[in-house]
Design a protein around this nucleic acid. Structure first.
Lengths: 209, 209
DNA sequence: TAGATTGTTAATCGATTAACAATC
DNA sequence: TAGATTGTTAATCGATTAACAATC
């Protein structure tokens, strides 16, 4: 029975299921029960069935789940088959590393362009992505269909830049700045990669193990 | 009343409190009530008081919390004042970007060394950090006191490398590979930065807003 | 003293786990 | 048919919120 509102806890498990199923596919596993999937992932079979049941019925009694089929379904739920378009703001060391290393296409994203303020990088191309001046941002966004903006800029200009982009109709932010961004519009979504927060939780846990 | 086992939900909020309190300090705010802190952070005052009460009594009735004092306390709980030592394994684009950009000292960490297999980088120095051959890893770890290892290596060698390090007594991993690492020893802690997982949750949320 | 705000206990809400009828 | 395993309902567990006596 499909649910209306899916909890954040469930959504955050979906990519892990997707990853595990991709690996199972690679190993040539054809079918799997919630019980064995749970054993591999250290999750109860109950939780797995509950999670999936939020989105539909993907299994078969007495058989389990077809791995490839389930992978496709979850990929579809996550939107990996959607060809989302993305631009990057800020091409410093981190931005550059992402452009060079991260397989955006693997998650259904295409990097259309990148923007920076530094004259030394404007006009250059990194891994096939052209870097434009921030002065041309407004025009670019108006004439292209952009789903997500990656923010790899200094803290100091983070909220200001985000607000400017929200004005232009962007409602997806992949935020690498260590700042909590916000918008009055609840349809604007922020996904944060807070390096410092992450490392601090590790610091706590190794001290209190 | 101090609690024995602190839930993960609480631990993950601590760095955010720490960040907010740092900002308040910077703004020159001297005292704050759970109510106003909650308003700034979009959290209920109840939750804030519950969270803090896991670790002790940091406030004063009728007054609230002294911002600087509370910041110090939470910093202490997280271990920012502990001088943890860390090494990095894998100095590709991402590793290099972290070495150059991320303020490790801000979270109480010192980067002692980095390791790689590529002859072209072995022997070089990035932002003050020397890069050594992976062949010297065992010896290095035996003769130094290392708390955390940053894994910025290819997926394919992730678990294998982690196991090797666990053997050597490492029990803190900051894992940037898109792989679920594990150890039979529950005292070994993994903190993951799963870029792809993160972007996929954003993909889901912009599609279902 | 009166007002404000804490720390904590109790109530509520939501998420996880267990149980089981349905069925492949 | 018998065994396995689903999807779903019910039970449990844990986390969040509300309430309030204590007290600065």
């Amino acid at each position: 029975m499909k649910k209306e509102n899916i909890s954040d806890a469930v959504i955050r498990r979906l990519p892990r299921y997707y990853r595990q199923l991709t690996e199972l596919c690679g190993r040539g596993v054809v079918r799997i029960s919630s019980h064995s999937l749970g054993q591999e992932m250290n999750i109860t079979a109950s939780q797995i069935r509950q999670d999936f049941s939020c989105f539909g019925e993907f299994g078969q009694q007495g058989y389990g789940y077809n791995v490839e089929e389930l992978r496709t379904e979850i990929g579809h739920i996550l939107g990996v088959d959607k060809d989302h378009h993305l631009i990057m703001i800020g091409v410093g060391n981190l931005g550059r590393a992402l452009l060079q290393n991260f397989r955006f296409s693997q998650t259904g994203f295409t990097v259309d362009a990148a923007f920076d303020v530094a004259p030394s990088v404007i006009g250059t191309v990194v891994n096939g992505v052209s870097i434009y001046s921030m002065d041309t941002l407004e025009e670019y966004i108006r004439s292209h269909n952009i789903d997500v903006v990656v923010l790899t800029i200094p803290q100091a200009v983070a909220q200001e830049t985000a607000s400017r982009l929200i004005q232009l109709g962007i409602h997806g932010f992949w935020n690498f700045t260590n700042v909590e961004l916000s918008s009055p519009n609840p349809d604007v979504k922020f996904e944060n990669i807070h390096f410092a927060d992450s490392l601090l939780t590790l610091s706590y846990r190794i001290a209190n193990r």
